[in-house]
Design a protein around this nucleic acid. Structure first.
Lengths: 195, 195
DNA sequence: CTTTTGTTTAACAATTTTGTCAAACTAAAA
DNA sequence: TTTTAGTTTGACAAAATTGTTAAACAAAAG
């Protein structure tokens, strides 16, 4: 079965991702996805056969992108501080674009049914943990469980973007003002992490 | 219309909250809620008339609890450090019990339709921000936008609990191990915040 | 130009989820 | 005990969502 590739399949996938990850419309129906993509709903079934398959594809892709983003950082051979600086830039950039991606992953994980690939990333992080431990031994970082360091780092990066609507309500800020605050965070996080 | 109060109405509400906030089942149907509560699905309509009304009640209650939790802290008259210590304990306790409550709120906010009370909490936070500013002026805290301080604090507290399933997968930890890590965080966050 | 084949569409069917209603039930009041 | 009124249940209806099919369409091949 050769293909003529009208781009529709990818359009649907991308639109779904945008609704889920960027707009946080976790309940989006196939009709809503089709409408947002400007195509006939039937095409969702034509290309993906079922709603679940589309969801699975988006879910798996999300996991892979998320994973490989981490791996790139974990496995790069830059000096530690540079590596962190790079991570902050890349991660915040991605999370700004797709703030609800992690949220989507977690929601799908909590949905039973879904048999998500549970292959842990233990091995991949291991070297990163060792590297952090080394920095602590050398007095470059405050001593703590290296996992706590990682959790701190990701919390400071991701959470304000995931909860943007709430934060904006609390502080009474509009989108632009909040975006500016997030931009300032890049440096701030770096300083906070390295005390 | 007087009531006999069999507790069923509250049971349904509480079960819904548990599914949404504790288990992260953001897609739960009325049937699933009824099953989890061990009651006939029709009772959801009897007591709440419609699914949407039940959702609205849960949503509003969540917002109120969340808000008043913050207010209690913001408006208390303890010394600053004690106040923060107290906040960390209370907030982590609550978020451990209901890790997905914020997530539920945000998801519902992103769902259009829902006309959530947008009354900002600007006034309530204002005094807290001033208090933080004062601490910074006195050299007790590193100088930064006080809002960033607040965001840091809440990020460090909430995010690891919201993303627990992901973190556990990354680090290959079971529930108990992760719970222990979270317990250790209380002190760690305090130290991190006060550098 | 005609055929072929992949794409798109609309109408229809099936399924899932939600909502309604009357009858059965149950605890308190009369 | 009978009555009353709120509660619970099952059967049914309505609505929303998803899936299927045949026909229309369009671009490339022959």
């Amino acid at each position: 079965m050769s293909t003529r590739d009208t781009g529709t399949e990818q359009l649907i996938r991308d639109t779904a991702k945008h609704l889920f990850f960027a707009e946080g419309k976790l309940h989006a129906t196939t009709q809503e996805i089709a409408d947002a993509a400007g195509v006939n709903r039937t095409l969702v079934n034509y290309y993906f056969r079922s709603r679940d398959i589309l969801f699975d594809q988006v879910f798996n892709e999300a996991q892979e992108v998320f994973s490989s983003t981490l791996d790139e950082v974990f496995e790069s051979s830059m000096p530690f501080k540079e590596k962190i600086r790079n991570l902050i830039n890349v991660f915040i950039e991605e999370t700004t674009q797709y703030p609800y991606r992690q949220l989507f992953i977690i929601t799908e994980m909590n949905r039973d049914l879904v048999l998500y690939s549970k292959r842990s990333r233990v091995n991949k992080v291991k070297s990163f943990i060792e590297e952090i431990q080394l920095e602590m031994d050398n007095g470059e970082l405050r001593k703590m469980d290296p996992r706590q360091f990682i959790i701190n780092l990701f919390s400071l990066m991701a959470h304000p973007l995931i909860t943007a609507p709430l934060q904006q309500a609390i502080f009474g800020m509009n989108d632009d003002e909040y975006a500016k605050l997030m931009e300032e965070r890049k440096e701030l996080i770096f300083e906070t992490i390295f005390r």
